[in-house]
């Protein structure tokens, strides 16, 4: 009996970890899906942009003097806010610049050309990261309060943890996703985005500045990646320049799972993928994580290429 209890505990613990990890994945996946929805480009460099986001946060926190202090004297909320805003601005700008320099001139070129260009941008980002923080994993300061709601608030003795960190990630990620949904649904720019996604030529004839809308989409994607960077750093307390590749592939898988081009699909896909990956890690071991994720990707693409919520994305 205790054995069975431990299994259920383990399973529940995996679910909590999965939901929290799903939140980062969903934020990155949104960046993929937004760009794909509007110009049908797999923005290969997006995962690496997220990696640079974690670095931007780390550098900001170091400059503000919170690199070594490990949660002493309370959480410096203003510094976290500054780091997040800076990372958002940094990633947003970088993404817009990449679009301007590397993708826009290729918009009329065959489909493979911008994708290859995006792979090139991804390599450039990885090397920027390498020059910025060096080849070894860097410690990210542990600045959030150490508080576990399950054991400290409710006094339960289980393996399940729902810490302040989980709350922080979810409390930041979910409002961001809602804000994105609001922007797309209710603002003038959001309307223009939807119009361009449907038919960019028609939209431009209706007086919409297509280039501006595309830049704005890249900006939104970059902002979300920057925010995800801060959350990832504070949650996992480490970062490394190779982080982006796996994160990007997972997020892309999530976007495909939800139906690429579909915003709520990407969010859903992120959470589903986070759960799956946590369950794989818990029961099979961390080394099988990526294998599980990629196998899932192949299976989805074979059996339901439109994803959970997509419509007709594959032709």
């Amino acid at each position: 009996m205790p054995c069975g209890g431990a299994r259920i505990d383990l399973f529940l613990a995996a679910i909590v970890i999965g939901i929290t990890n799903g939140a980062f994945i969903a934020l990155i996946a949104l960046g993929y899906t937004l760009v794909y929805g509007i110009i049908e480009l797999i923005n290969f460099s997006h995962g690496d942009l997220f990696m640079l986001g974690t670095f931007a946060c780390l550098t900001t926190l170091t400059l503000l003097g919170f690199a070594t202090e490990v949660g002493i004297g309370g959480t410096p909320w203003w510094a976290l806010l500054a780091a997040m805003l800076l990372a958002m601005a940094f990633c947003g700008t970088l993404n817009v610049l990449a679009e301007r320099i590397a993708y826009r001139p290729l918009r009329k070129a065959p489909r493979l050309a911008p994708l290859i260009s995006a792979i090139g941008v991804s390599f450039i980002y990885v090397n920027l990261g390498l020059l910025w923080q060096g080849p070894t994993p860097r410690r990210f300061p542990d600045l959030l309060p150490q508080y576990d709601f399950v054991s400290q608030m409710f006094g339960l003795e289980t393996l399940v943890r729902f810490t302040f960190k989980d709350l922080f990630v979810l409390g930041l990620a979910i409002p961001l996703m809602l804000a994105l949904a609001w922007v797309i649904r209710n603002t003038r720019m959001g309307k223009a985005m939807r119009a361009v996604a449907q038919d960019s030529e028609m939209a431009s004839q209706m007086g919409i500045d297509v280039n501006r809308v595309i830049s704005f989409t890249f900006l939104l994607g970059g902002i979300l990646a920057g925010a995800a960077g801060l959350m990832y750093g504070l949650y996992n307390n480490n970062t490394v320049f190779t982080l982006g590749f796996d994160a990007g592939l997972k997020a892309f898988t999530a976007a495909v799972l939800g139906g690429i081009g579909n915003v709520s699909g990407a969010a859903l896909g992120g959470f589903v993928l986070g759960l799956l990956s946590a369950i794989v890690i818990t029961f099979l071991g961390g080394q099988w994580d990526s294998v599980g994720v990629f196998s899932l990707l192949v299976i989805i693409l074979v059996f339901k290429p439109t994803g959970l919520l997509g419509q007709g994305a594959s032709d």
Binding site: A102, A109, S117, G120, V126
Partner: peptide, 13 residues
């Protein structure tokens, strides 16, 4: 790798 990245982008452009 940096060389690869830059050369891919420049070539495409």
């Amino acid at each position: 790798q940096l060389l690869f990245g830059v050369s891919l982008v420049v070539l495409m452009l």
